[in-house]
Nucleic acid binder design. Structure first.
Lengths: 102, 102
DNA sequence: TTATATTAATAAAAATCTTAATATCATAGA
DNA sequence: TCTATGATATTAAGATTTTTATTAATATAA
């Protein structure tokens, strides 16, 4: 058995699972996909296009924000959301670890 | 705004979020990491090494099994678990979509 | 006042943990 | 043989915690 001494620490473990948790809901993936296709969209556009309740959309956006997957800039009365691709890239690396690609 | 007509269908959306959900717990990531370092380990080895309650380990393994991330072969009284890397690879592709790598 | 968006409160649903029960296999011993 | 015992692992039942949805209230900019 190979068994390395380097074990993933609790911090990273927690962070990774938080990230996975943010992606663990169909609506959130749907929102992310929409943001991926349209950079800088306001909330109104999101819930009107995807036919999601305004409040629900806002709450899911908060989960994504907390996980650091998205962020937004305020423009007048609009909130323009966008994906934080660097964070998603880090998620990818985590997956890569399982595949021994690094 | 570019907005393609091809939208991810409900099936895939559901499947992807199921997969994310399976990874959305520190203990499950810990177990997966252990399985990644040691191919074909029995349950006893998992919970003794990681210091997790037997029953909890079994329940988390079930979640991982249901999501299709791991599977096992029965060998006598042992159940040898292993990661289904092909499934993890598909998870990676999903992440790649967000990065426009395919 | 209206449009945009978030937050609060609470109800409903799902996930997790705890503890106990069950199932299966291997084997020691009558 | 057979049956009892120990080791392995899963499952069941419940209580607890966390997520999600619903609805109403709040905040802010035009």
């Amino acid at each position: 058995m190979k068994q390395t001494k380097v074990v993933i620490d609790g911090q990273k473990l927690h962070y990774s699972s938080e990230l996975a948790r943010a992606l663990a809901h169909p609506l959130r993936l749907k929102i992310l996909e929409f943001l991926d296709r349209n950079q800088e969209v306001n909330v109104n556009k999101i819930y009107n296009t995807l036919r999601i309740e305004q409040s629900i959309t806002s709450q899911h956006l908060k989960v994504l924000r907390t996980a650091g997957v998205v962020d937004y800039v305020k423009e007048g009365k609009y909130a323009k959301y966008y994906i934080k691709y660097d964070v998603v890239a880090r998620a990818e690396k985590a997956v890569n670890r399982f595949l021994g690609k690094e």
